[in-house]
Design a protein around this nucleic acid. Sequence first.
DNA 1: AAGTGGTCTAGACCACAAA
DNA 2: TTGTGGTCTAGACCACTTG
Lengths: 230, 230
Amino acid sequence: MDRTVTWQAIRAEALRRIRAGTWPPGARIPDEAELATELGCARATVNRALRDLAEAGLLERKRKGGTRVPVTPVRKATFDIAIIRQNVEERGQRHGYRLIDDAPRPPPPEVCATLDWPAGPPMRHVIALHLADDRPFCLEDRWLNPAVAPPVQAEFTSVSANEWLVRNVPYSDGTIGFTARPADTQAARWLDCAEGDALLAIERTTRTEAAPITFVRLTYAPGHRVDATL
Amino acid sequence: MDRTVTWQAIRAEALRRIRAGTWPPGARIPDEAELATELGCARATVNRALRDLAEAGLLERKRKGGTRVPVTPVRKATFDIAIIRQNVEERGQRHGYRLIDDAPRPPPPEVCATLDWPAGPPMRHVIALHLADDRPFCLEDRWLNPAVAPPVQAEFTSVSANEWLVRNVPYSDGTIGFTARPADTQAARWLDCAEGDALLAIERTTRTEAAPITFVRLTYAPGHRVDATL
DNA sequence: AAGTGGTCTAGACCACAAA
DNA sequence: TTGTGGTCTAGACCACTTG
């Protein structure tokens, strides 16, 4: 009376063989049908397990080419993108928020280029500070398509643009990247550090098919760390 | 003559309904069996589609509780972790490598704590520079368990510790995090920048079940950007 | 031309969590 | 207790790629 074999068990066994060198780097491993027979389960179960390992970068699969252990694996790491208030509260701190500036301005060239926004017309430029237990946490510097978030509907005085967008224009596509930047005058002032201090910044671009939504740079207070999982 | 309905098509349709507000934030969506009937496919196909959206953070699923559109979705972003040489070559540049230092030293307390390494015995401390088209790209500052990579077997003079580990101790577990740091004297010297310049750093811890393998800080030259995808 | 992974189906049973 | 997602199975056909 065999217990059912789960795909997680198959994945664990495959991972064990990879780590043990039973399936060395560069080698082709048995095909799904063969493994299914050997391990006593359906091919679909093997497929699920190997597909999962392939998504993590631990295997490479190609039709007809079979499944191989990559010589130089490219692992995937993931991190969560929540609203800032959630980030703060997850740390067990109280989230505070303060709107610093909100005005229409023509965006700088690099923002225009990133968002496919013409050089002339203004966007809505919003600057706000997020606090954790009354200490500066993160400076939000955002350029918004005014058609998406008109000032009348979205004030950003008590709810941040970050949160307003997630609730009202959710599930859009975009890009995200990490950089380190020296604190400029404004960042130094609001994040309570010296000009030139090394700050971690996350830049996001968000858009729908038709139109750009927003470009935002989140500059974190000194020492901030963003963790990812493998 | 119905064409077969693919799980990608189901996912696209579900995403459309989420974005269109057909399934508004907070709402519970029809169960799998119902959707399968409505969309003309097997329940397994619906399951695959909705599971995929749930992994991306666009749906929340619970047994008996059904599937819901989260009010404040926590999206997942992923980025690739390749060896540094690959990173450089992907940018169309030539990778260069230079070993700066390699000596046994007792690690500083924070490294001991991260790796569960006792305070007394030395680890192998390796410092190396990676170049892109002969310009500084990234400084590798690494603490290694000497039992895992003994100097006799792994010289690191022409192959970086980064690459040696991926090839010889692959597929291990660990943590990874981003920070911004001011350039110290050493970083400034090798990365060709001024002391105090803001530099992006990636810190990784790697271990097997039994023993720590390595702690490494990769400090990138000024302006470096790490991109992730949603 | 043929081998291998990708996926769909229909049915079944199970595990978890809500009522 | 019961509804819902999680998963397994056996069989089938298809799509991509390599030989």
